[in-house]
């Protein structure tokens, strides 16, 4: 093989460079990677813009009825007026507060119950069919019961939020706890530990990735439960605004509320994602 010359060996190197951009394979790879990501982002933004433009045009040319389908401009003005009269902050605040509260309760109760199930093998065997039934039951069917038992108000809504997410959360956490390597558990016993040490030193710290992924699922489920609760038993909140808006045919209000819901669902999910990143980085 011929000996490779470095660039400085070639007198005409600068000239040569001008003609063809000479990239190393790594630089080319990075550039391609960056290009790909930029084009994905651009396509996403374009898709949204095209959808909004089509929507607006369809309404302004009366292809569809703006009364039923609203339009981006109507939504924007509805949003601004909600912002000005403070109804946005109040309703959004209530829904967010209920969601976060029921989410935190789901995670706490979920970890607690999964721990008990892990600790007592008999308990998990006895309770398994009940958990499966409760998990597959459509929880919205329970909402009327909650209203009768707890009245209309924040408690009912938080309970509805919890009921949607809790059983799935317990099952997935318990499964996660059970999947921890038997040999790691044996290690704790060989070091003179007991079952509590196994839980504290292996099961819990080893299950943090499972807990985080369960959280990602449950933040969405808690929001679903809270909106169901608000449909049925609230006088404030985004779910209430949607139901109220549809009853008085203020569809601008309905669609604006739905869009706000989209945004907070995304933000809540993003928060957990950040927590996960932070955990990974710390590791």
């Amino acid at each position: 093989m011929k000996k490779q010359h470095s660039e400085s060996d070639i007198p005409s190197a600068p000239f040569f460079r001008k003609e063809t951009p000479c990239l190393t394979a790594q630089e080319a790879f990075l550039l391609a990677h960056k290009k790909h990501h930029t084009s994905i982002r651009l396509s996403r933004a374009l898709l949204l813009a095209a959808f909004l433009a089509l929507w607006e045009i369809s309404v302004s040319f009366h292809w569809i009825d703006g009364f039923f389908f609203s339009s981006p401009s109507r939504i924007a003005s509805c949003f601004l007026s909600m912002l000005q009269d403070g109804s946005l902050a109040a309703n959004l605040g209530i829904t967010l507060c209920e969601t976060v509260f029921s989410f935190l309760l789901v995670i706490l109760i979920g970890i607690f119950c999964a721990t008990l199930l892990w600790y007592s093998h008999s308990a998990s065997e006895i309770l398994e069919p009940y958990l499966v039934v409760l998990n597959s039951l459509p929880k919205s069917a329970l909402a009327p019961l909650f209203i009768v038992w707890l009245g209309t108000g924040m408690t009912t809504i938080i309970v509805a939020g919890i009921s949607v997410a809790l059983f799935g959360c317990i099952i997935s956490l318990y499964t996660g706890f059970k999947q921890v390597d038997e040999e790691k558990i044996k290690l704790i016993y060989t070091l003179g530990g007991n079952k509590i040490d196994v839980y504290r030193k292996v099961i819990l710290p080893g299950s943090i990735p499972t807990i985080l992924s369960t959280m990602k699922v449950n933040i969405g489920l808690a929001l679903v439960g809270v909106i169901i609760g608000e449909f049925l038993a609230a006088r404030r909140g985004l779910g209430y605004l949607i139901i109220y808006g549809s009853q008085v045919f203020q569809l601008n209000l309905v669609i604006t509320s739905i869009l706000i819901l989209c945004i907070i669902a995304m933000l809540l999910y993003q928060c957990i994602q950040w927590a996960e990143h932070w955990y990974r980085k710390r590791l």
């Binding site: 390597d181 040999e183 790691k184 290690l187 704790i188 070091l191 003179g192 530990g193 040490d197 030193k201 292996v202 710290p205 080893g206 943090i208 590791l283």
Partner: peptide, 18 residues
């Protein structure tokens, strides 16, 4: 079976800690 969530020092002192 060194635990990834512990540093080497925390791993070797696990038995003493327990």
């Amino acid at each position: 079976h060194l635990f990834e969530w512990r540093s080497i020092y925390q791993n070797v002192t696990l038995g003493l800690e327990i």
